[in-house]
């Protein structure tokens, strides 16, 4: 049986409050039956330096990506991963991580591809838990293997491919990268190595909303009013819009996907995980340089 959802005023304003838990709630529910806590970080060694007691680690690169093809694991791979992490199909999974849950949101999005029902984020992530002086452990959690069914991935509802983006012109696109990447001055995040894109710029007509705007100083999500101000007023999204979000490889845009889908209630949001490392290398796709979104091709 799923663990009951947290209720508080901040979460209640969101479209799907049951997708978030606070650090306080988690501290009170550690050890609940059917609850599995997952840490997913950018730094592959961070979990080992200390994690929430009982949490298991899921690495976005070695666990969730296929080793050869640029794709996610398949149904069997996901079932095997869930099994060794002690996650069952009806487990309540709470994911948290570094960098305002950047990678945690990515992991949550991949869980969604497999239709895992009850998967939530820890508001504020790893940094908030640690900043509050809550207990951490360096003991790697030993789990008993679970049974997890082989579920075929269902990409279509939440994942966009390059051809989908080409067919999407005329509807809203959100580019969640830094302003420097959007304008084409850089092809990767400031202070990160330049990686793997031959062209700089953005997909024509995409609105620039860097992902981090959705996060408050302490790494928690901003409240609903603030988020509406960003995505409705600034980016011009309207209720019911069909939206595609992208970044460099689909990690930062998973964070925005979470915000649009679960906090603001957009029902048709897809993450284009090919993102700039595909688009910026593809032959003859349209690209706009500079700060203006530019026109969608007819």
């Amino acid at each position: 049986m799923p663990v009951s959802a947290e209720t508080n005023d901040k979460f209640a304003a969101y479209a799907h409050p049951e997708r978030l838990v606070s650090t306080e709630w988690l501290a009170d529910h550690l050890g609940d039956d059917d609850l599995v806590v997952v840490e997913s970080d950018e730094d592959i060694l961070l979990y080992e330096t200390g994690h929430i007691p009982g949490a298991v680690k899921v690495d976005w690169h070695t666990d969730l990506n296929d080793a050869d093809t640029r794709d996610y694991v398949d149904g069997e791979g996901f079932a095997a991963l869930m099994s060794v992490k002690g996650i069952s199909r009806d487990s309540t999974v709470i994911i948290y991580g570094d960098k305002s849950n950047w990678w945690a949101a990515y992991a949550l999005w991949v869980f969604t591809l497999f239709g895992h029902q009850d998967v939530r984020l820890l508001d504020g992530g790893r940094d908030k838990w640690i900043a509050e002086g809550r207990e951490i452990s360096t003991v790697t959690t030993q789990v008993e293997k679970s049974e997890y069914p082989v579920i075929e991935r269902n990409d279509a509802p939440v994942r966009a491919f390059k051809d989908d983006v080409l067919a999407h012109f005329g509807k809203p696109l959100i580019d969640v990268r830094s302003p420097e990447e959007y304008s084409g001055v850089r092809t990767t995040m400031p202070a990160y190595p330049e990686e793997g894109a031959l062209r700089g710029g953005h997909i024509p007509s995409a609105a620039s909303v860097p992902w981090g705007r959705a996060a408050a100083e302490d790494g928690t999500f901003k409240d609903r009013t603030q988020l509406e101000d960003i995505y409705h007023n600034d980016a011009g999204l309207k209720d019911g819009d069909d939206v595609v979000a992208y970044c460099r490889i689909g990690e930062r845009s998973s964070h925005t996907w979470f915000v649009l889908t679960h906090l603001l209630g957009f029902e048709n949001v897809r993450n284009y995980d090919g993102s700039w490392t595909e688009w910026g290398n593809a032959v003859r796709v349209p690209i706009v340089k500079g700060e203006a979104p530019g026109e969608a091709p007819k």
Binding site: D43, L45, L46, E48, T49
Partner: peptide, 9 residues
Amino acid sequence: PPETPTTRG
């Protein structure tokens, strides 16, 4: 920083 163990390694 301590929260970047891979870089430190």
